[in-house]
Amino acid sequence: MTEFFQQIVSGLASGGVYASLALALVLIHRSTQVINFAQGEMATFATYIAWTLIDRGMSYWPAFVLTLLVAFVGGVAVERVVIRPVERAPVLTVVMVTIGLLVLVNGAMAWLWSPEVKSFPSPFPSRAIDVGGVAISLQDLGILGMTLVTLTLLYLFFRFTKVGLALRAAAVNPESSRLAGVRVSWMLALGWGLAAMLGAVSGMMIAPTSFLEPNMMQVIIIYAFAAAVLGGINSPVGAVVGGLLLGVALNLIGAYAEFLGPELRLPVALAILLAVLLVRPAGLFERAVVKRV
């Protein structure tokens, strides 16, 4: 039983990472109807920036905050420079552009930092604490806590601030938003900035265990896609729940279904996704919007 709890907690920790990245995908898809295939590479890039800052002697948390700022500006810039020009282009064009961005960022990272694997520090101690007889790793707890703090802040921002409201409004009804005085095109850029920040958090959380290299996020982004689709590609709550569920499920499978082996984790994740989508094509949390005319 204790091992089961440990597995759940560590599943929630990795699930939190998938959730953050999935939420980044959802934020962008809601506002610009674009699936950002480069989200994972952007997150890795941000993690490299954090690595560089720490490598140059900055301590962890200032580097963390500075990286978030850089990621935000970078996300805004990507929307302005790369996405904006193809805003009205067919979906396939936009897809190609984000895939191009993926390849470009990936190459840039290998060129700037070399493809070799780097170790990345964790801000959390590597001890475990005893909670009612269950040893829980402070790593896992820290990552989970970090994810929850990030998501809570984001929720409060969307729920209670004027800009958060405008972001939601611009995503669902751009024309009315403009009539209300919202500069919609900047809201889209802002959405990309926030998504890049979320990606940066997930990158910095996963890097201590997965090690930093240009392809670090390539499997994780697939889990994030799975989580986003599982929850419903336009549902922020769905992305978070989807990510956590997937993290726990994968961890339990890894621990208790050993015959499957680690190389089957990804196929199993996608099989779960397929099964859910067969029953609920729009995802677990996608609401059909009631519209009256």
């Binding site: 004027k162 409201l165 405008a166 939601r168 409004a169 669902v172 009804n173 024309e175 009315s176 938003s177 009539l179 209300a180 919202v182 919007v289 009631v290 519209k291």
Partner: peptide
Amino acid sequence: GTFAELSVWDNLRMG
């Protein structure tokens, strides 16, 4: 021009 997915109150806040 209703923000159909938003709450009634958020619609007013948008105003």
